[in-house]
Structure formats: C-alpha cells, structure tokens
Design a binder for these strands. Structure first.
Length: 778
DNA sequence: GAGCACTGC
C-alpha cells in the first residue's frame, strides 16, 4: 500500500529526486500512505515528510479541514481564522519557505530571532507540517513527537496553550506540555509537546536515544541553563546514531556562530524581531553609588520625561524595598513642591519571593492625574532580574539599568556556591534595554559609561555550568550513559576541579565505585529529583526506620524558606517560629512545621499559615514535592516507615539525625572553645564559620551538621543539627579515616581515631561499608 | 543576631 501511495500521484510536481531520499529511507511503510490514503481530500494530500514546501503549507492552513485534529473538531473554527490572520503578520511567517528548505536540507539548524518574531509559537508548527510526526510511529506504536524545550515552566504552559488555540486543537490532546508535577499530554494523540528542558533531560535517562521524538527544538538556548547545555552535549553524538532525528537550536542573536560551530557548521536562519527602537543613554562618568544614582535617575525621569512607566533593575529584595521607600519619599516631595510638573507616582517592588498577589501589582495601571489638566501619573517597577526574562510588563517606556545583578558563583576549593553582586553582561544589558520597546519607542538609561559598556562588560553571562556545583549534573550524566565526563563534548567545559569535586562527593556517598562507575545505589539516587546528599539520606532512611520523616525533611529542604518575617512584625514572627523550634536543630523544626500544617492547619490552612507566620505557598510546594518523592520511593520498594514515638522520643529523633548524617557527613563543623569564645571550623576544609542566627539550636554542640553554607557578611552555616561523631564515622568510615585529615585537624582527628578504636569496626546500618582507596580520575 | 538573583528535576 505504501508503495502504491507513492506511485499514485502523491509526489509533488516536478522531476522525481535523482537519489533516494535519505529521510524517507527509515520510515515505516504506512508513513507515506497515511498522508494520502485516509482521505483523498486531506489538506496534507501530496505532502512528503520533510519535502514539504511553503506553498503546500500555506494551502493547507487555509483549507477548511484540520489535518491535525484527531480528537478535536475537524472543521476549522472561526477563531482559527481570526488568529491565523495575526499569525501571518509575524516576521517568522514570511520566512517559512527558507525555514522549510533549511530544515529539509540538514539535520541540525540554528535559528536566531529577536523578541516578537514569533519563533516559539510558529516554528514548531512549521515543523509539524514538514515532519508529519502524527503519521510516524514511535517505538511504542504511538505517533512520534516534536519537542520544544523551555527553561521555565510558565513558558512551556502558556506557549502550549497558545499553540493549541492556533492549531484549533484541544490543549493536552494533539498539542500539550510536560513540566514537573504536571503532564498535560496524551499518548497516542499528542504530537507537539512543549516541555521544560529539565524534563527532557529526565526522559533521556530512560530513553537514551530519545526515540519518541522526530524533532527536538531547544528554545531560548542562549540562556544556557544547565539542562540546555547537557542536552546539547547529548544531542550532538545522538545525531550520528539517529539520522532521522532533527534538531533546531533557537536563540537570541548573540552567539549564534557558537552554536553553528558546535554543530559543525549547521545552517543559520535569522528572523527579525518586532519591537520599537530604544534610545540609549550612558553616564559621562562612572557613578560611585549606583543605588543613589538609580533613585536620582528615576525621579528625574518622573520630572522631565513624557508619560510612560519606568522599570528599574536592582539586585535583591532588601535593596529593592529600600529603593522603593526612597523613591516614594522623593516623589512625595516633588508632588508637593512642583505639582504642575510631577503627577502621582506608584512604586511597585518585584522579586520572586513576593507573594503572587503582590507580584500582580506590576500589571496595575499608572495612577490617574490628580486634576484633569494636571501632569499624568506614572508607575515605577523596581525589580530583580526576574523582569529581564521571566516576567514581561507591558507599557514600560523607560528602563534604568545600573548594570548589576546577583549571580551564582561556585568555588570548588571550598565547595561553596554563593551569590555575588556582579556586573551584568552586554547581552543582559541589551535584554534589559529591550524591555523599554515593547509597546512604543522607549529610552534606556545606563548608569555606567559607554566605555565601560564596550570594554568592561563581558559578551554574555557565563553559562550556568561554569558557575555551579555539578554534583547533581555529574550523577545525571553518568545515569545518561556518559562514561567519560572529562571528554564529554561540552559547549563550555567546566573547570576540571569542579568535576573532581563532584566525583569525590559522589564516591564518598557510594554513588560511584572506585572506577567511577555508577553503583546500584547511585542508579537509584539519580532517579530522585534531589541533590545527591538528599537522595542518599532518603534512600538509607528505611534502614533507620524514619523514611516518613526524612521524606518530609527532604521536601522541606527543597522548597523556599517557609518562615515569613515581615519587617514590621519580626517579634511576632520569631515568637511564632519558636513554637516549632526543636532544640536539637532546624531539620527537626522543619519536621514540626510540616506536621503541624498537616494536622492543626488542616481545617483552614490559609488562616493557619497566616497566624503562624509560615508561607502557605511553600508548604503546598513541599507537599507536592513530598508526594513525588514518595512515589519514587515506592517505585524502588523503599519502605515507608517510622520509629515508634511515644515513650521513645530519644530514638525517634536520633534515627532521623543518623539518616541525615548519612547524606551530609561532608558538611559538618566542629566547635573549638566554649561559651562566648566558641567558634566553629568546618571539617577538612577548615573554614571558620558561625551558626546562623536563625537556627533553632538552643546550645552550641560540639559537632554541627549544616545544610547550607551562606557567604554574606560572615561565613554562616544555616539549617543545622547536632550530630555525634560516632554517627559520622559510621556513615562514612572512608571520609573520616584518620589518615585523611590534614595538619591542624589534630583535635578532630584524635576524636575520630578514638571512636574508631572503641567501635572496633562494626557500625550502624546505612554506612557505605566501602573502604575508599584512591579516587580514580575519570 | 541576619537574609533569599533566577530557574529546573
């Protein structure tokens, strides 16, 4: 049947191809039939997979019936036609022919398009017409899929919704999305799927050739998230293995040639954007105090510039709240001294930890004029980087850019990630500037000199892979079957020391053997959406009869801080927090909060959270994470158990702390001195640290296990519990082997040696039991 | 006695 279909006129007009089409060679026979056989009046009549022309597509989109509808109405709706008119006006639409040609001619292509080009919504649809994934069969017999990855969940959801509308199909059927906690797709109907990049990476763990996909589109690749970078490295060798797979890398303008070179000269398609011009101003001299300069600039705009809202970029919550107060004060003064010049000013802060209801305020309209002929009101949004990519505010005409943001940096020497206020990149500055030109012509005030912009700012922000602790990534890569982590073809290779640090940690945790291969424990650890330390403590927790509790603690440690502390009510908030405090440490306090939320707070969670100064949002997230982790536990037959509590509280809590120690024995500090002169030094790394003031520990224990090392005004250790050295020793005899200590660790070394002698080799469950030899270079 | 840029699994 297949052959007859090709023979009976399905070929497009023109001479037949001289050589066999390599893209058709692999296809199931019915693929070529389906495009013509099901109905001779199908709009896809005559379409040959990946040989489709723009003329054919343009005809099909104007046809009366929807060739992609399997569960939805087959006749196009009026709404489809309304939206279609707008789609046709998008810059990318004019280049459909170019696109289809390049898509057909090469396995990998790079697309660059500015904001407003329509690439995210249109390109996957163009691919659908050319690829005809719904007519191919994947390994499971269901149709193949086109994947389009996004760095953020909201984007995946909202774009999928939009495209489902554009294609006149039901969201979750033919077109869907997959993000953590929500799979809005349905086999066998879904053939176009938007998803987070991290989600595709997870899928690759179980299907290393990504066999379900016919085309993979990596959108927003210029953002260089960890997941995108790893996906790039996986897809590159996969090309040879799967000649039928097509890859499209979509990016903003910068670094297109980097992607092209990476894929051995992949062709490039450039799509113009559709934004308004933005005039840029620089300061003639460097500003000594960017915060002061920023506030001054905002107030000057308010006095001197035409109607239009302002967006000011600052680095963090505290700075933003401070600036908001000062701008309000300045505006009040202006309004009273020159009411004929300055209208009312509404100042709105924006950062991610703000509750959604307050985030919504950025979409409020500017305040009205005080009198009909008075000066217009204006809105000022003072925001972190969240307004650079994640959130778009329409109506912004003026952008004030001091040129800084908080950026994550990783120091592999002391294994610490920290946030550092750093100069932004040129790409970032351009992105900020663009925020002024979304609705009409705008202005961008850069609070640095043009010379600094040209000479000092780096081209683009360093990719995340160069700024992160890679313990998780290295575990994932191994699980993905990458045997040699150093030779992996990274777009930007991380520092060897960072990889060594990750390997070292994973080896001590028992995830890797001494050959650097994944152990059975490591295989399971990789399945958990958690840092390796958390995964390890969860996996060993049944042996300590506390997996129910560790599930809660792991979930609580995976969500933002649940304790709220509004500036005006610090004392009440601290008092509320004290009710949950456990004297042995913060992990146990977190357990208390969650338990109280699920029991006392069950009736009226909103109100209960409010009364207790805890974040309902964070607790709901913790609940979500906990269920997901529980499902993973069940999948691996890890028992969900608790230690008897009544009359046995000591053991109940000790077991929990022992399990935590099995994951976090490398994050322990030892006290020297006592009373007021007590201070802590981290084991092995010998960093001087202090207990974070937020801790619920009511004393200064000799050994403290910490979850986080926070580098701010001092070296703080945050979220701490007391541990006993014998637990540490049993959780990793190798790590605490006396010979592994350095000079200057005399006291800790002596303690550990003493305990080792006393215990004479036996140990608690959960200890890896391996003696660590030399860590092999991988 | 202080802080949490932003994502993602």
């Amino acid at each position: 049947m297949a052959n007859s279909a090709a023979a009976n006129g399905a070929m497009p007009p023109g001479p037949p191809p001289a050589k066999p089409n390599p893209y058709l060679a692999h296809l199931e026979p019915e693929d070529q039939v389906a495009s013509t056989s099901s109905s001779s009046s199908s709009p896809l009549n005559g379409f040959l997979p990946r040989k489709v022309t723009a003329d054919q597509v343009l005809k099909a989109i104007d046809a009366p019936t929807n060739p992609f509808a399997t569960t939805s109405n087959k006749s196009y709706s009026q709404r489809y036609r309304d939206i279609l008119a707008k789609r046709k006006a998008l810059p990318v639409f004019a280049q459909m022919g170019d696109f289809l040609k390049k898509f057909q001619e090469s396995q990998v292509m790079v697309m660059i398009g500015e904001t407003g080009s329509g690439k995210t919504t249109q390109i996957p649809q163009f691919v659908a017409y050319s690829d005809l994934p719904h007519l191919k069969k994947g390994p499971d017999g269901a149709p193949k899929l086109i994947a389009c990855t996004q760095p953020r969940r909201v984007a995946a959801m909202s774009v999928a919704k939009r495209v489902a509308e554009e294609m006149d199909v039901t969201l979750g059927q033919e077109v869907g999305y997959t993000i953590r906690f929500e799979d809005c797709t349905s086999r066998p109907h879904t053939f176009l799927k938007y998803m987070t990049d991290g989600m595709l990476l997870r899928e690759a763990m179980h299907d290393k050739t990504l066999s379900r996909y016919s085309t993979i589109i990596l959108d927003e690749a210029h953002e260089r998230t960890l997941a995108t970078d790893i996906l790039l490295g996986l897809l590159k060798p996969l090309c040879a293995q799967r000649p039928d797979l097509k890859i499209i890398v979509m990016s903003a303008t910068l670094e297109a040639d980097k992607f092209q070179n990476y894929f051995n000269g992949a062709p490039l398609l450039k799509v113009p954007g559709r934004t308004f011009p933005v005039e840029t101003f620089y300061t003639p001299e460097p500003e000594p105090d960017y915060l002061e300069a920023a506030i001054r600039t905002v107030l000057m705009i308010h006095q001197a510039e035409d109607e239009g809202d302002v967006l000011l970029f600052l680095t963090g919550e505290e700075e933003i709240e401070d600036a908001c107060r000062k701008i309000r004060a300045g505006a009040d003064e202006l309004a009273s001294t020159s009411p004929d010049l300055c209208g009312p000013l509404k100042v709105v802060p924006l950062y991610s930890s703000l509750p959604p209801s307050q985030q919504q305020r950025i979409f409020d309209s500017a305040p009205p004029r005080v009198s009909p002929d008075g000066p217009p009101g204006r809105k000022v949004v003072v925001s972190t980087n969240i307004a650079e990519t994640s959130l778009t505010i329409d109506g912004i005409v003026y952008v004030v850019d001091p040129g800084f943001s908080k950026q994550k940096v990783y120091n592999p020497r002391i294994r610490v990630e920290s946030l550092l206020v750093s100069p932004i990149s040129k790409a970032s500055a351009q992105q900020r500037m663009g925020r002024a030109g979304r609705t009409r012509e705008g202005k961008c005030f850069r609070l640095y000199t043009e010379k600094d912009f040209v000479q000092e700012l780096i081209e683009s922000t360093y990719p995340e892979i160069l700024r992160s602790n890679l313990a998780n990534t290295v575990l994932e890569l191994k699980k993905l079957g990458v045997s040699n982590l150093v030779r992996f073809d990274y777009l930007d290779a991380p520092a060897p020391e960072t990889i060594m640090r990750a390997l070292e940690l994973l080896n001590y945790l028992g995830a890797f053997d001494d050959n650097g291969d994944l152990t059975p424990l490591g295989e399971i650890m990789a399945e958990f959406p958690l840092d390796p330390q958390l995964a390890k403590m969860l996996i060993v927790s049944p042996e300590f009869k506390c997996s129910n509790e560790i599930l809660t603690i792991a979930a609580m440690l995976s969500v933002p801080n649940v304790f709220m502390r509004p500036n005006a009510q610090r004392q009440q908030a601290d008092a509320a927090k004290a009710e949950f405090s456990h004297p042995d440490g913060d992990h146990l306090s977190l357990l208390n909060v969650y338990h109280a939320y699920k029991t006392a707070g069950k009736q009226d969670p909103n109100n209960w959270c409010w009364q207790n100064y805890v974040s309902h949002r964070a607790l709901q997230q913790a609940d979500n994470v906990r269920s997901q982790l529980q499902r993973t536990m069940e999948r691996f037959n890890l028992d969900l158990v608790s230690t008897q509590f009544e009359g046995n509280e000591r053991n109940y809590y000790d077991n929990i702390r022992k399990a935590i120690a099995c994951g976090f024995f490398m994050q322990v500090a030892h006290r020297s001195g006592s009373g007021k002169s007590a201070q802590y030094t981290t084991l092995k790394d010998n960093q001087v640290v202090a207990l974070h003031p937020s801790t619920s520990l009511d004393h200064s224990p000799e050994f403290v296990l910490y979850h986080e090392f926070v580098l701010t005004s001092r070296n703080w250790i945050r979220t701490c519990i007391e541990v006993r050295p014998e637990w540490l020793l049993t959780s990793s005899p190798a790590y605490f082997n006396p010979s592994s200590f350095r000079e200057g660790d005399g006291e800790v070394k002596r303690i550990m040696a003493g305990i080792a002698k006393k215990m004479g080799g036996g140990g608690d469950p959960g200890a890896s039991g391996r003696d660590k030899k030399k860590l092999k270079r991988v």
